[in-house]
């Protein structure tokens, strides 16, 4: 599992570059590096469904970010300026929150199951029912879960997607706005 740690180090580095670099196009490319590393890690973690979705979604995310940056500007003018009072306050409060968060997370991580040994109470039931005569009968357990056992969840997801598309199309059009 050493390659998992290497990828995590790479992702943290790319994330720091994405937040701190001056050129916004380079920041978006660093974000793409993080996203594709996530896709490769999904394959290592035995989740091929997630890897396929993550790769194609990552490509579309990059395309949309680049479209917005090409229409506007690609220089981040706020990097390198002197810090304002609000920003110093934000950094101080973030540090306080981060320390508190890390303490809480450290105590939580000691309670949850260790890496590589999940408790699979409900999941064993889904796997057992998967191909039996009572179950949905699909060979892909993830497809069984999202479209049969928990189909209402997917319906809610479809609603969110629909709302988001409507909002984007409404916000971007020109007609109907005041001059």
């Amino acid at each position: 599992m050493i390659e998992l740690y290497l990828f995590l180090i790479f992702m943290v580095t790319a994330a720091i570059i994405a937040t701190e670099i001056k050129d916004l196009m380079a920041a978006v490319i660093s974000l793409g590096a993080v996203g594709f590393s996530v896709a490769i890690m999904f394959i290592m973690l035995q989740a091929p469904d997630l890897a396929i979705v993550q790769i194609v979604v990552e490509v579309l995310t990059i395309v949309i970010f680049v479209a917005v940056i090409l229409r506007t500007t690609h220089i981040d003018k706020t990097i390198g300026k002197k810090l304002s009072g609000t920003q110093i306050l934000a950094i101080v409060s973030f540090s306080g929150f981060a320390i508190l968060f890390l303490i809480v997370m450290f105590r939580t991580l000691q309670e949850i199951p260790a890496f590589g040994e999940p408790i699979m109470k409900v999941a064993m039931e889904y796997i057992r029912l998967g191909l039996s005569s009572y179950g949905p009968g699909g060979a892909n357990i993830v497809a069984n879960v999202i479209l049969d056992f928990r189909a209402l969840d997917t319906l809610g997801e479809a609603t969110v997607l629909f709302t988001s598309v409507i909002a984007v199309v409404t916000l971007i059009r020109k007609s109907g706005r005041k001059k």
């Binding site: 949905p136 009968g137 699909g138 497809a143 479209l147």
Partner: peptide, 26 residues
């Protein structure tokens, strides 16, 4: 697998058309 392939086709039409509409708008 009963209704699962039909649901897959429906979801695919919905997701594909929705994301293409977002791309066209943006």
């Amino acid at each position: 697998a009963g209704i699962i392939p039909i649901c897959n086709i429906a979801i695919a039409i919905k997701v594909g058309a929705g994301l293409f509409a977002i791309f066209l708008a943006l």
